[in-house]
Design a protein around this nucleic acid. Structure first.
Length: 575
RNA sequence: GGCCCCGUAGUUCAGUGGCAGAACAGCGGACUUUUAAUCCGCGUGGCGCAGGUUCGAAUCCUGCCGGGGUCACCA
């Protein structure tokens, strides 16, 4: 927007009870007064910089009139939900918490679209067992674990467990319950009777035609039990007349049955785009973000919005299009076996870091999620930096909110507490017998608070997972149980050093890493060429390699009797 | 082909009209060169390219280049 001094005037912004103007206007005004009036600009031209420093969720909530927010999100469980599916729940949970923090009333609903058909058998499940179920509603398909719950319910429970780990606890619902209880009956009738209008909406909004006798409903076939390929061609006021079409879907055939059934109480379902609009009415949803696949111009969100306005005469929920979570730069696909399920992700890295990863990124930006090399330690580091800035007050307002909303549990002691660097914990965790609690209390400079001990224990518990699955080889080390045979490769200077170091260690009985480090340097100085040879000798006999963690602290953390016997054995082997 | 997102330090990314930032890596130091654990210090930059708007552009507009995503039906 181009502004001219003394001409255009931007819309004022209400902020904290003051009327303010955008920065551009202020600067133009300021120049105008300075150059043409020869005076200071009046005080009413105030630039409120804080306004653009808000966290996106708070800004969004502040801009909406809802007295009570009803957030909704849902998913079809045709298999394990992949980790990218967590983006919707995280975004909605952040908005939900933001609304509550703003003093609004709010609910957060999460649905299982379990009237949808099974459209593929995911890899890992028996093709023979599940092929007969293709095309049937997920609420009817048996669970993979043999339990009485449905296939959809099994994967729903798995995904909700992952959500709970991230601190997300929406109110659950299942579309099959909504249909069977009759709560959908009213909107089903409205939509079936509005078939002509719906056909027009499809044509206008998404440029896709529907046949003249198209009725928007898919009954469960009374003969074969499939729902995906039934086509209704007539509604007589009470019953829909349908045919189970043999060639409608590529993944499973219809049985050819022709019948008529009352479309109420779970006898079938609405097509997706209509069902979306219908459930908004039934559940009173007034905010629902949509993934970028739905958010295409003329896509399902546009159709659902148009139906809400034109058929239900209501305003559609506020929208927030969001991008996906990509793994290693590519889209995850459970059917191709690429990617990681949400459940697996909560085992591959701590829930707190998984939540942080998503909360720190704005919804419209795709998250490129990596697990390899040092990605996870860096995630810890980034989180810890945010925590430190939160603690010492140097964080901007939006950064504070980002950190608050990233918390799995909003525990003030944890948020403000000391946290050991993850890479540090990884190293200490590999030293057998190390007293980690004491070690990190010493590093902190004070005893650990209960919440800090918990945090340490969580990191200690996760360290072996990272070491085993993702760490580069050089991050791993192992104290050798017996003297490594490569001790023979040590040279004369290293042998002399080990003899004198063993003697010193025997006499000094050192208790702390610093004095050990000092002794190593001291003894090494007696040889030529720096201290490297001495450290390499120690790493060789304890770890079987030529480098390792800081030697002083490392040796101090080991059992003294073990250190003595290993030194003795090494000296003996070198004779 | 249409649409959306991204392109900023070696790397991953913040910043979205007002003095180019952080983390990690790196470099220097903490005993006279051990180290992917600690501490202190140091920012290494044509903000993808070309125009435009503006007093002022990484930020807004147009076009282009590169990367990713998405677009029948179904969901």
């Amino acid at each position: 927007m181009a502004l001219r001094v003394g001409h255009d005037r931007p819309d004022p912004v209400a902020y904290n009870g003051c009327v303010c103007f955008p920065a551009t206007f202020y600067h133009n005004r300021h120049r105008h007064y300075r150059d043409e009036v020869g005076a200071e600009a009046p005080a009413f031209c105030r630039v409120i910089l804080e306004a653009r420093l808000q966290y996106w969720a708070d800004e969004m909530i502040a801009g909406l009139p809802q007295e009570e927010f009803v957030f909704n999100d849902s998913k079809t469980y045709s298999g394990s939900a992949h980790v990218g599916s967590l983006r919707g729940p995280v975004i909605h949970d952040v908005l939900y918490r933001s609304a509550l923090d703003a003093g609004r009333r709010a609910r957060f609903l999460y649905g299982s679209d379990d009237m949808d058909a099974l459209d593929a058998v995911p890899p890992g499940l028996s093709q023979e067992t599940y092929r007969p179920w293709l095309g049937k509603p997920l609420c009817e398909v048996p669970s993979p674990d043999g339990s009485p719950r449905s296939y959809a319910r099994y994967f729903y429970d798995e995904f909700m467990a992952a959500q709970h780990k991230l601190g997300i606890s929406p109110e659950p619902y299942h579309m099959s319950d909504l249909y069977r209880s009759g709560r959908m009956n009213g909107v089903i009738r409205t939509l079936i009777e509005a078939a002509d209008e719906l056909r027009a909406i499809y044509l206008e909004v998404s440029q896709s035609g529907r046949e003249e006798d198209w009725i928007p409903f898919s009954p469960v076939c009374e003969k074969c039990g499939r729902i995906a390929m039934t086509r209704v061609h007539h509604f007589d006021g009470e019953r829909v007349h349908y045919r189970c079409q043999p060639n409608a879907m590529h993944y499973a055939p219809g049985c050819g049955h022709e019948g008529a059934v009352a479309p109420w109480d779970g006898a079938g379902k609405l097509p997706w785009k209509l069902e979306w609009a219908a459930r908004w009415q039934v559940l009173g949803v007034n905010f629902e973000g949509a993934g970028s696949d739905h958010s295409i111009a003329g896509g399902s969100r546009d159709v659902a919005d148009a139906i809400t306005r034109r058929v239900f005469g209501a305003e559609p929920p506020a929208n927030l299009p969001y991008e996906f979570l990509l793994l290693e730069g590519g889209k995850m696909s459970s059917s191709k076996g690429i990617g990681l399920s949400a459940h697996e992700a909560t085992e591959a890295l701590p829930a707190q870091q998984l939540r942080w990863l998503q909360v720190r990124t704005r919804p419209r930006t795709a998250i490129n999620f990596n697990l390899g090399e040092n990605a996870i330690p860096r995630l810890f580091d980034d989180f810890d930096v945010a925590a430190e800035r939160y603690r010492d007050g140097s964080a901007e307002g939006w950064q504070r909110r980002q950190f608050e909303l990233a918390q799995v549990r909003r525990d003030p002691d944890v948020m403000a507490g000391y946290r050991p660097r993850f890479a540090h914990v990884v190293t200490i965790s590999q030293i057998p017998g190390a007293d980690t609690e004491t070690y990190f209390a010493q590093h902190k400079g004070a005893p650990l608070l209960p919440a800090e001990s918990d945090e340490l224990r969580e990191r200690l518990a996760y360290a072996p997972v990272w070491l085993e699955r993702f760490a580069p080889a050089k991050a791993r080390f192992e104290v050798q149980e017996s003297l490594p045979p490569e001790v023979k490769s040590l040279d004369a200077a290293q042998r002399r050093f080990l003899i004198s170091f063993a003697r010193w260690y025997e006499q000094a009985r050192p208790a702390d890493g610093e004095s050990i480090h000092a002794a190593i340097m001291d003894l090494a100085r007696r040889e030529q060429g720096g201290a490297g040879f001495a450290f390499r000798a120690l790493y060789r006999i304890f770890l079987g390699r030529s480098s390792g963690p800081r030697a002083g602290e490392f040796l101090a953390a080991l059992e003294p009797s073990f250190v003595r016997s290993r030194l003795k054995a090494a000296v003996a082997a070198l004779d």
